[in-house]
Each structure stands twice: as C-alpha cells, then as structure tokens.
Design a protein around this nucleic acid. Structure first.
Lengths: 214, 214
DNA sequence: TGTACATCAGTGAACGCGCGTTCACTGATGTAC
DNA sequence: TGTACATCAGTGAACGCGCGTTCACTGATGTAC
C-alpha cells in the first residue's frame, strides 16, 4: 500500500488531537502537558513533536477541530428547519443551536469554559463560532424584515445568543432537566419580545444615512 | 504603635492579592506564577509564602475578593431600585446588574473568563455569584406572583441571567456601544416575554404536590 | 527614658521536579532496479 | 519476484529552564524590666 505509512501517521496525529481534548477536559489548561497528551494517545512523549511544532500548534488544531464540528452541526440542524408559525420556527432554531452545542457534553463543557480565553487559540477560534452565530442571526432577522422596526439588530443578536448559551449552560450544568419545556418557554418569550419591539412606539429615529442630532 | 507591624503585613498581603488579579488578567492562568505575583507586588518571591500556603490558597482569597466586590455592588445597586412601572423596574434591575459587573472592566473580564473554570477556586466562587443571582431572581419573581402563572421560574431565571451576562459581555467586548439603548430593549423585550408567558394557555399542569401523570 | 532581649516580616540562596525541547538512533515501510 | 538502499514515524536518553518550595538569616519593630 502506497499510503499505509501516511495513513498510520494521520491516525497517530488524530489520536494526539483527541488526547489533547481529553486531557484538556480532564485536567484543565494548566494540567495540559505534552507528556500527558502523549500518554493518553498511547505514544512516547517526543512523538508529540513529530506532529506539532509546540503546544500552541496542537491547541490551535484541536480548537479548529471543535469549532468545525460545532459549525457543521449547526449547519446540519439549521438546514432542516421547516417553516411554520413564527413560534415553531424560533423554537426550532433554538432547539437546533442548543442541541448542536450540547450533543457531546464534554465538547460543550470545553467550549463553554474556554470560549473567552483571550490570547489562546481556544478563545480565539471559539469566539468566532459565537460571532458567526450573531451574524447569522442578524441576517435571519433582516430576512424577516425586522431591521426597519428594531433600532439595532446587533442588540437582539446579542440577546438571542445569550439566551441560547444560557440554555446550553443550564443543560450542561444540569440545572435544566426538561430542555423541551425550556425551548417552549424560550420560543414564546422571544417571539413576544420581538413582536413587542416591533410594535413599540419609539422616539423618531433618523432614517439611515441621515445626519444625527449632533 | 502596637499594630504597625500587623498593619504592614496586612498591606503586603493586600498588595499580593491585587498583584495576583493583575497578573491573572495580564498573563492568564497559565502565566500566573508566584514569581510574577511577587514582582508585581514589589516584594521578593519567597515573601509570597509568608502570606499564602500555596498558589491555590492565594487564588481562593483573590476569588473571594472579587466575588465579594461583585456581590456588594449588586446589593448596593439593587437596594436603590425605586418602584415604578414594570418596565422601569425591570430596566433598573438589568441596569444594576450589568453595571455591577462591568464597572471595573478588568474585573469583569476576569470574572467572565474564569466563571466556568470548574475545579479551580475562581470557577467555584464565581459560579456562586451567578447562582446567587438566579436565586434572587426566582425570589423576585415569586414576590411578583409569577410562580402561579409560569411553569418553572428556574427556566426564567436562567434566561434572565443569560441576558444579563450577554449584555455585560457585549459591553466588555465592545460590541455594544450604547448600553442605555440595550437596556431599553432588554426591559421591553423581557416584560413582553414575561407577560406573554403569564397570559399563555398551557396544557393543564398538576397543582403543586399532586402526583404527576407517571 | 534606657537597655537588653524577643518576635517576626521579609529575603537571598539553594534545591528538586516536571516540563518543553532536541537528537541520535531504530526498525518497519517504501522504492529502484 | 528478489535484493539493496532510502525514507521516515516513532523512541530513549539527555539537557536546560523556570517553577514551587524550603531554610537559615537579617534587621526593623515590639516588649519586659
């Protein structure tokens, strides 16, 4: 076989990446060492350096792996959103996002714990996932014509992502036992909140492009 | 002076605690060493061990310090909540909580970043702060008589805390520039969502204490 | 008040440990002929 | 197909470094008389 050596190397690399996430989950960032990673992968410690230039390199790849899995799941779930009443649609969107996050509990814990670790590959990559979610939400809301009724869609994206992550944290931390009930409440709460935002009288806002009051 | 030596020791201790938070903010958990803490505090490195038995000891104290400051501010702000319309009240509550969190931006970043570091003093103490907020919210909602209309107040506490932390993160990460506008929207969104939850027809729930369907 | 002694916060120097990193080497896999 | 050579993933051993931790010591502060 022309690729058996290559394939074996790829397998070892994958074992090291999986081991990185496993040790990171078990021992936390400060307990993450090349020795423990190699041990968890079943290889000698210097083997780590056959595949990665240093710890940051491995962490970057591992973070990409997680981010990619999360985004793939999000895409899969969202692709299956069938139309229906606003409440059904919003509920399905929450359900998709929360389930994409918490399907693998260890991954969810890792993601939630390190999503704000600024200056590390984990924080940087994973912050991209939530930022992506915010942008998708703004686009969705624009498609529903909300940008003419609401003052700043970014604010609403912030709120919706916050609620989604709260639901995911509630599940991961086992404070929420009945996810379906929570999704029901989230959907009704959100639709009512958005409708109220649309219906509400506001101080006249200048049309886009017009000079502000100052 | 009978207490000058004691007082000097207490001052050094405080300098070390402040330095711990400073280095933690600057270099992250993995860059936090007794040497850097001592350097930032302006003392020799072994002095660290005059005041703390080890790093975990110092981290626990530092985490308590931050948690205490946060809870104090929350209490102060909430004590000044004046009555008014539901929207004014809810807005004031959001405003109080978000401002308590973000008044000191470095503290806010530290808190948000390490609030889920399970197994570390930071995660444990700071998770208590959000848990405390959830319990306070449930109590508030009970006082407003919502427990007879909503299926599970814990779900709503989860949602409200999630929105509060989302607003704080938006401010700290500078995605939210106009906090007052966000607070307006949050208040209207929340009141409409809660009112809809109260008004909504639900599948008959058994009264408290009654046996469930299974 | 003055003196002699006790206390103790803070320190410089030293130590061992675990870690990241390097390197020469091995032996299985792949390739040229 | 067989042989001789090249490649290279993986390894054991060794190294230096920074860290946590200890300890004998200093000198300023406090106390007893």
């Amino acid at each position: 076989m022309a690729t058996s050596r290559k394939a074996a190397k790829a397998r070892t690399r994958q074992k090291l990446l999986d081991a990185t996430l496993k040790v990171l989950h078990r021992d936390g960032r400060s307990g993450l060492t090349t020795g423990r990673i190699a041990e968890a992968a079943g290889v000698a410690q210097p083997t780590f350096y056959v595949h990665f230039s240093d710890m940051d390199d491995a962490l970057t790849e591992a973070a990409d792996l997680v981010a990619q899995r999360m985004l793939e799941r999000l895409r899969d779930y969202r692709a299956n959103l069938s139309m229906g009443s606003p409440i059904e649609l919003v509920r399905a969107a929450f359900s998709a996002s929360v389930k994409a996050l918490v399907r693998d509990r260890k991954l969810a814990e890792l993601f939630l714990r390190h999503r704000r670790d600024a200056g590390t590959p984990l924080g940087e990559r994973w912050a991209q996932v939530t930022q992506r979610a915010r942008l998708d939400l703004v686009r969705d809301m624009e498609r529903w014509g909300l940008q003419t009724s609401l003052p700043d869609l970014n604010i609403y994206a912030e709120i919706l992502v916050g609620m989604t992550l709260a639901a995911a944290e509630g599940v991961v931390d086992k404070r929420i036992e009945d996810l379906d009930l929570m999704l029901d409440e989230l959907a009704h709460f959100t639709v009512a909140g958005l409708q109220a935002g649309v219906a509400r009288e506001r101080p006249a806002a200048p049309p886009m492009g017009a000079p502000g009051p100052d």
